[in-house]
């Protein structure tokens, strides 16, 4: 039983670390702000989830596990808010994303047509 738990938490910790590294690599390789947001969301969901899950398996059914669950829930609740605020602020500051396909027809929700030069 102990053995199985150890192997499982090895797997989760390694997967979490690997996803963190992938996200960091994406941070360096992506061409503009909006695409880097996607790399960060990989870190903040899968990397964080893998590492916290591995730690929970090591902690067992204790207060430490409860605190780890609270940390995971808080990150999952706050990460999209921060990401959305960043994307909106970048758009309002006039940084336009590099697009291959623009399906909005130049119309962005919440903006007047006239202000969209």
């Amino acid at each position: 039983m102990e053995m199985v738990l150890d192997i499982l938490s090895w797997v989760f910790l390694l997967a979490g670390g690997a996803f963190c590294l992938i996200g960091g690599l994406g941070m360096l390789r992506m061409p503009d702000v909006y695409t880097r947001l996607h790399a960060v969301s990989v870190i903040e969901t899968l990397g964080m989830g893998g590492i916290i899950l591995g730690l929970i398996l090591q902690a067992g059914f204790t207060l430490v596990a409860a605190k780890l669950i609270i940390i995971a829930a808080l990150i999952l609740l706050t990460a999209p808010v921060a990401t959305h605020a960043l994307a909106q602020a970048a758009l309002h500051a006039g940084i336009l994303p590099k697009l291959d396909h623009d399906k909005t027809g130049g119309h962005i929700a919440g903006e007047d047509e006239s202000s969209n030069s």
Partner: peptide, 18 residues
């Protein structure tokens, strides 16, 4: 295993700081 994961996270912090 904790040491390995810590090193991975620290390397990621280095990349993000870059």
């Amino acid at each position: 295993m904790f040491a390995v994961a810590t090193i991975a996270v620290l390397v990621t912090i280095g990349m993000v700081l870059a």
